[in-house]
Design a protein around this nucleic acid. Structure first.
Lengths: 248, 248
DNA sequence: TACCCACCCATTGTATACGTTCCGTGTATG
DNA sequence: CATACACGGAACGTATACAATGGGTGGGTA
């Protein structure tokens, strides 16, 4: 009972949320985006169980479609499919978090040099607009939206390279980073400092690929450093340890 | 008629081939490996249609399981799911091929440095054994097996870095490379020259990460250069052009 | 009182059945 | 004789029904 009660409220949120505006009939892909966004925005927290029946009822589709969506999310490491236990939002391990940020530094930095060479004026304007929206969301206290926009910004930045394969990979890494922030992030300051993205755009616009790459490296390292990856916060919640004082 | 008649023989290959040895009962995941291997080994050529009913009958499972497998393969870019046309083995475009090899050079080279630092003696032995098997297959004319082993070698090499995320990514890139070789490769010489892998192992074993990275870059560039990426070989087979001489 | 076993229910895994859409072919007409 | 329309069939998309398994709870016993 204690576990199953962790989620149902969020599914109600889905109904009343206008973002998933009653797309009952067409758009199976829209269901995927809805769930993915909910996870990225931390409306569905790591560890939350995703029962097939519940999702099927919420979105007005059958379990068949739900399973397809969950499988796709599982392949992107956003949800974890335990053989007979069902699906739950992935709770990234410390090693996983480390791997994801190592991958991001490797790929995103390298792509900056290509992006600086290929970027167009229209794309620069688009990036500035995205940055503006992100800061706007951050300013008005919409942390959830800011997190999603930040991931979208990094993903769009990677897509400037023109390499679809690497861009998609970065997109997945950014999504997983949102999960990592949800688990290991300090609620005090979010991952991306707003002014960083603006500076990044400047460097790209000036064609300073090398500097953009270096800046991106520092940017990502600073995000990673801001995480509180305590080794001891792993494994069992240690009921004994937690309630030791109470029992003492 | 011209398009649909291009494939049906391949589905018969599946039936008579003993490699998919009657894994009827357990192992839904085994079906995935069977199909993936068939694609990587070029037993299923790019463009080959994969009818759900046929696969279901061959593997003794229902279409439900087949669809799950096909979806997974589609996500790894090994098969293409056309909305109402069904599944077919992906025929990589020129741009896709270029992207994949750019990604491989970026990631695999970078991982060599990490691998050279972390590799153990046991892993070196394992790599040498894999290299031996690959050369053995190449020597005995089993090109299909050699292609698969070569991809497995690169994938295993990447996994030495300890970064699961990047290793999995490289694994997918290697699988897609097999497809690219099937389309753009000259049947004369396969992608990986056998002695290259041995040299790569030597450098890793000696802890020469930098040299290993450089060598890997040359290795991959040489594979890419061996491809015959003719821009004109794209698009429609141009029945008019092909039969112009006959009509003339 | 604490631990273990057995039963029941909830949830997922799999298969089958139905609806839908698109391709191919055949015929009719300009 | 060519083209266009229409019909039939085949394959995919979706939903529903059944089967199997694991966990949770309750009772019994040491």
């Amino acid at each position: 009972m204690s576990r199953s009660s962790a989620v149902p409220e969020s599914s109600r949120e889905q109904e009343q949320n206008p973002s998933s505006r009653s797309r009952k009939k067409k758009g199976l892909d829209a269901v995927y985006r809805s769930v993915a966004d909910a996870i990225i925005e931390h409306r569905l927290k790591p560890g939350a169980r995703l029962r097939e029946d519940a999702l099927a009822e919420v979105f007005g589709i059958s379990r068949t479609g739900v399973r397809k969506v969950l499988q796709r999310l599982a392949m992107e490491q956003l949800v974890t499919l335990t053989p007979r236990r069902g699906a739950s939002v992935t709770r990234p391990s410390v090693d996983e978090a480390k791997d994801v940020f190592e991958a991001r530094q490797m790929v995103e930095c390298a792509l900056m040099e290509t992006a600086a060479r290929r970027v167009t004026a229209a794309e620069i304007r688009e990036l500035r607009e995205m940055d503006r929206q992100e800061r706007e969301a951050l300013r008005s206290g919409e942390q959830r939206m800011a997190i999603k926009l930040s991931a979208a910004f990094h993903s769009r930045l990677a897509s400037l390279s023109g390499n679809t394969t690497l861009a998609d990979f970065v997109g997945q890494l950014c999504s997983r980073s949102s999960l990592i922030l949800a688990v290991y992030g300090n609620s005090g300051h979010l991952g991306c400092e707003s002014h960083d993205h603006g500076k990044l755009i400047d460097l790209i616009a000036e064609g300073e690929g090398r500097k953009a790459s270096d800046f991106m490296e520092r940017h990502l390292k600073s995000i990673e450093a801001s995480l509180s990856i305590d080794e001891d916060s792993e494994e069992t919640p240690d009921l004994k340890d937690i309630f030791r004082t109470a029992a003492d």
